[in-house]
Design a protein around this nucleic acid. Structure first.
Lengths: 234, 234
DNA sequence: CGCCCTCTTGAACCAGTTCAAGCGCAGTGG
DNA sequence: CCACTGCGCTTGAACTGGTTCAAGAGGGCG
């Protein structure tokens, strides 16, 4: 087995929770695919012939509406899996998938996945708990979209992607701002303005990313409501 | 077995797909609960001791944010199940649940569900496909929230709940407008104005509900984008 | 009758979009 | 080497969809 294939095992919760035999079977039947930024992985409403695990980079799951706009449903990165549900239902993809950055994917053919689910009863439980996590992530998004303003969602996004560095938090923006805006459900212009406003809340641009100098202020902004924000601005 | 218990079997996809033995075991271990409108079923972040199937009426799944606003995540009606994921993970509820109308619930205790999952391997697959449907429903909501205006979401909501009646479509609003607004992610006032505007698109108020006289116009509105809507208004 | 509750309407205001222009930068070709 | 172009991002100004706050209409009920 190639070292890169072994690496895939370690990173992905679905694979690493499965027993060795299952994991090896899946990886042997799979192939590694390298995709360029912007390259299509599969289209919405086309037959699901494989499912995927992200080994590196970012993948965008999206839908194009009748109106022509694009709705970005999820962004996936290292270790995360997608299109498993579509494959197991033997139906069409419920969304399109594009490489959001240069990325490395493990492509698992449909029949391999189905066979594993047949042979290894424990694998069903792993998939079930994986799909529960999907539900949580989607619920969180709905919560944010229904109750938070654009700026709050931007702030929460930064907070989520921030990592400690020195005595501050540091955020490396994971992908282009156009994409980030689409994911957050706002226009690129609004994202730009939101980031400008966040400077007043302790978010400073440094080379290669953003630094959160006042974590408390940011958390307060995220938890506040519109009326309070207006008061505070005076 | 009580007749009302048998009725529960027929209505719910999760139960009716399960084999007879499983279904009977679950129903025997469950109890029927009648709830008044507004009554709490369980609270967010409390231990999940039971899961539920709606036999009648409407149930609201929601979260209260730090800011104090309420995010309505899902509305469930006859035959639909909720809190299964929370129970199987042996954790806390990921959302609160209230009776949105007077309703009848089948309450399945946690241990009964877990035992069934243990004894009947096919039941795992049923739950898996059920959770895939949850994911679809949540994805649809995110799509709508990110790309459609409030009026479009209202129109789509009506379209979804409409039933043929005579040679038109007829919608009985399933619950109060305050709740409907929260579900759609707008304020009650905006919903009221949206419904007023929809009169120009073939939605007339008749006793007990709304009638869609021009289905084409409504579908067109749902699929249009902001710019086009502005053009059409001139 | 008065009271509560749901829903509607109006007017001012704000958040986010739209359209247009402009900046900085990498790549390309003369 | 510099002009040209394309791309990602920002900024400005006008505008719109939705919110907010306040008032009022209408129905059900003690």
């Amino acid at each position: 087995m190639q070292p890169s294939l072994i690496a895939a095992n370690i990173q992905c919760p679905i694979l690493s929770q499965a027993k060795l035999e299952t994991r090896e079977f899946l990886v042997e039947r799979s192939r590694i695919r390298r995709m360029e930024r912007g390259e299509g992985i599969f289209l919405h409403q086309t037959p699901a012939r494989s499912c995927f695990v992200v080994m590196n980079g970012w993948v965008k799951l999206y839908r194009i509406l009748d109106s022509g706009d694009e709705a970005v449903l999820r962004m996936h990165t290292r270790g995360e899996a997608f299109a498993f549900a579509d494959v197991l239902r033997r139906g069409d993809h419920q969304y399109g998938a594009d490489a959001a950055s240069e990325c490395l994917l493990l492509e698992i053919p449909a029949d391999a996945l189905r066979q594993v689910l047949n042979d290894d009863p424990a694998f069903g439980a792993i998939l079930l708990s994986h799909s529960f996590e999907q539900i949580d992530a989607l619920s969180d998004q709905i919560e944010a979209l229904k109750c938070q303003s654009g700026i709050q969602r931007v702030a929460a996004f930064l907070r989520y992607h921030a990592r400690p560095k020195g005595n501050h938090l540091f955020v490396t923006l994971p992908y282009e701002k156009v994409l980030m805006a689409a994911y957050l459900g706002i226009k690129p212009e609004s994202l730009s303005r939101a980031l400008a406003k966040l400077r007043q809340h302790g978010v400073v641009a440094v080379d290669g990313g953003l630094e959160i100098t006042d974590q408390g202020a940011l958390d307060e902004l995220i938890a506040s409501r519109a009326v309070e924000r207006r008061m505070a601005a005076r």
